[in-house]
């Protein structure tokens, strides 16, 4: 497939004062794949995500989303580009003063002109799509369980029918059953809606179950490859991550 990669980042440098988090980081994500990003605490996973989202301008490097370099865009163009992808944040980040359905409707109200009926029904469709019961739509985030918050966040990410999803630790804080259910949901949606998913995660289960390719942030750069390549990569940190005690149990279970 000679299609242009959906995300292409080259030579990203992220620096906070004297602390260099990323030094010449490259990243490529192809259309239709599920790409996992892994890294130690402090390796700058969230910083990388913010850079890809255009929330943070890197000190150097370029980030191309669908061919457009977002580091060179002005505010208006950047705002319009943001409708092309959906994001979930680590703690859910639902708007606490709005109900679930109002959360989903917010991007719609902001960027589309819809009749009230369409607004209500389309938002409800997204809520149902992520497996939430209809009653949950009218609840406030403080009334939801952790698993429901994550699903609601996903519904909001899908509000504008984006082709690209960026998820920051989508299963963190979920019990194994809920996490597995969320993985199933994500896999199903990715298939049905032909989505590209970039997922920051520590959840080895999610990685082995969902991801086509994995990128590991080590030594301020990204090492990427398909699951098999990465699991057998010689770098000591990657070895420790994927071949350590916990990982080996998973690896054995999944036949990796």
């Amino acid at each position: 497939m000679t299609m242009q990669p959906i995300i292409e980042a080259r030579g990203i440098v992220n620096r906070f004062g004297t602390q260099v988090v990323h030094d010449g980081l490259d990243l490529t994500v192809h259309a239709g794949e599920i790409f996992g990003i892994v890294g130690g605490s402090g390796s700058g996973k969230s910083v990388l995500l913010n850079t890809l989202l255009g929330l943070r301008r890197p000190q150097a490097g370029e980030v191309r989303i669908r061919g457009t370099d977002i580091t060179q865009l002005d505010d208006a163009a950047l705002r319009s580009l943001k409708t092309l992808y959906g994001v979930t944040f680590q703690a859910g980040a639902l708007f606490s003063a709005l109900t679930v359905i109002q959360n989903v409707q917010l991007p719609m109200l902001e960027h589309l002109r819809l009749s009230p009926r369409v607004l209500e029904e389309l938002a409800m469709l997204k809520v149902r799509l992520v497996g939430l019961p209809p009653e949950a739509a009218y609840k406030y985030p403080s009334q939801l369980s952790g698993g429901m918050v994550k699903r609601a966040a996903l519904a909001r990410a899908l509000a504008l029918d984006p082709q690209l999803l960026l998820l920051d630790e989508p299963t963190s804080g979920l019990d194994p059953i809920s996490a597995a259910a969320f993985d199933e949901l994500l896999m199903g949606l990715q298939r049905e809606l032909a989505l590209t998913v970039v997922m920051i995660t520590h959840d080895l289960d999610s990685i082995f179950r969902n991801c086509n390719r994995v990128g590991v942030i080590v030594d301020r750069k990204l090492v990427a490859g398909d699951l098999d390549t990465i699991v057998h990569h010689p770098h000591p940190w990657i070895q420790a991550y994927f071949q350590g005690d916990r990982a080996r149990r998973f690896g054995a279970a999944h036949g990796a």
Binding site: L125, R128, E135, Y138, E192
Partner: peptide, 22 residues
């Protein structure tokens, strides 16, 4: 289109008791 079938399936699944909007 398969995606239309997905919409139908989603809206039909577990309809549950009628939602009473507060």
């Amino acid at each position: 289109p398969a995606i239309v079938a997905l919409v139908e399936q989603t809206l039909l699944s577990a309809a549950g008791p009628p939602v009473v909007k507060p």
